[in-house]
């Protein structure tokens, strides 16, 4: 964690400096009273100090052992976690075009199958659970989930 602390602490400190500088450009209130910039400026200073604190703490403890990120986890699990992230990105990009139902079925089947559920059960559960969630949110709670390809049928 040590090397990461130095890196993250430094990023936090740099981000704090950027916040401080940006907030300095915000206007003041009438009569010279501090305005919208004061609070973020204070936060920027605290970010710099705490970021330096995190990095400094790791330096003092001489915690230099470098470990690549997520190196404790097997590669299969790392790919599964990446798939979770990609599934959300995939949904954001394609939900309007394809619609909720096809997207949700694809995501559920892919993630279940990938994490060890049999293909047959992944398909059955993927379709069944998607329909259940669709009915719950769209028909009962009236959330207008994207209809996409199925807009003429739903």
């Amino acid at each position: 964690m040590g090397t990461w602390d130095v890196l993250l602490g430094s990023i936090i400190a740099i981000a704090g400096a950027c916040i401080f500088l940006e907030a300095r450009t915000f206007p003041n209130l009438a009569g010279g009273y501090p305005g919208p910039g004061l609070f973020p400026q204070l936060l920027g200073v605290l970010f710099v100090l705490s970021g330096l604190g995190v990095a400094g703490n790791a330096v003092v403890k001489r915690a230099w052992a470098w470990k690549p990120p997520l190196s404790d986890h097997p590669s299969r699990e790392k790919i599964n976690a990446l798939l979770v992230v990609l599934a959300v990105i995939f949904y954001i990009l394609l939900a309007d075009t394809l619609g909720f139902i096809p997207m949700a079925i694809i995501i559920l089947i892919a993630l279940m199958f990938r994490t060890g559920v049999s293909l047959r059960w992944s398909i059955v559960l993927g379709i069944g659970l998607t329909l259940a969630i669709y009915i719950l949110f769209n028909r009962i709670l009236h959330v207008p989930l994207p209809s996409g390809l199925l807009k003429y049928w739903l």
């Binding site: 959300v88 949904y91 939900a95 995501i107 559920l108 279940m112 559960l125 969630i133 959330v143 989930l145």
Partner: peptide, 27 residues
């Protein structure tokens, strides 16, 4: 089995985040 539960929770997260403003930006 958590391998059935996790994809469902992810889907509930997506729909839950979307449901408040009906906006994919929130997702």
């Amino acid at each position: 089995p958590r391998n059935v539960l996790m994809p469902i929770i992810l889907l509930m997260c997506i729909v839950g985040a979307y449901a408040i403003n009906n906006d994919l930006f929130d997702v």
